[in-house]
Amino acid sequence: MHLGVFDMNKRLEQTRKVLREKQHLKKLIEEDIRELEDDVKKLEEFTSASANKVRA
């Protein structure tokens, strides 16, 4: 009986560790996405401004 409880506690501890790691990775990915969105916006503004200069 005690062995089963120990295994469950160990499994719970491992699951919590994996959860923390995945939450950290999620945060890093979300930051990367925001940076990429900003880069795309800046590039769109740059290409739009460049196209306007060519037309003028």
Rank of each mutant, 00 (worst) to 15 (best):
S48R: 15
S48L: 11
D39S: 09
F46T: 07
D32Q: 11
D39E: 14
E31I: 04
D38H: 15
S48C: 10
E44C: 01
R20S: 15
F46Y: 10
R20I: 09
E30V: 05
E37S: 10
D38S: 13
R16S: 13
Q23M: 10
E45R: 07
Q14P: 00
E35Q: 15
L28K: 14
I33K: 01
L43T: 01
K41A: 07
E30M: 06
E13C: 01
E37H: 12
L25W: 06
K26L: 15
L25C: 00
K41H: 11
L19Y: 11
K22A: 04
T15A: 11
K42H: 04
L28M: 13
Q14G: 03
L25E: 02
F46A: 09
I29K: 13
T15R: 07
K17Q: 15
E45H: 14
E30L: 10
E44I: 01
Q14H: 09
D39L: 13
K22Y: 08
K26W: 13
E45N: 08
K26E: 14
E30Y: 09
I33G: 00
E31M: 08
E13G: 01
R20Y: 08
R16Y: 07
E35N: 14
E37A: 09
T15D: 04
E30W: 05
K22Q: 10
S48P: 05
L25I: 04
E44H: 03
R34P: 00
D32N: 08
K26D: 12
D32C: 08
L36I: 11
L19K: 12
E35I: 15
E30F: 01
H24P: 00
T15M: 10
V18W: 12
K22C: 05
E21L: 00
K17C: 15
V40K: 06
E45W: 11
L19R: 11
K22E: 09
I33D: 01
R20K: 14
R34G: 09
D39A: 14
K17H: 15
T47V: 15
V18Q: 14
E21R: 00
K22N: 04
E21H: 02
L36R: 10
L36G: 05
D39R: 14
H24E: 05
E30Q: 09
E45K: 08
I29A: 13
D39T: 08
D39Y: 13
D32G: 03
I33E: 02
T15L: 11
V18G: 07
Q23W: 00
L25M: 02
Q23N: 12
E35L: 12
F46Q: 11
D39P: 03
E44Q: 02
R20F: 02
E44R: 06
K27D: 08
K22V: 06
R16D: 09
L43C: 07
L28N: 15
K42I: 05
K42E: 05
K17F: 15
K42V: 02
Q23S: 03
Q23K: 06
E21N: 04
H24M: 08
E21V: 03
V40E: 05
E21P: 00
K27V: 12
T47L: 13
Q14L: 07
V18D: 07
E37G: 04
K42R: 11
Q14K: 03
V40L: 08
K22T: 04
K27P: 02
V18L: 13
L28G: 06
E21W: 01
Q14C: 00
E30K: 05
L19C: 10
T47D: 11
K42Y: 07
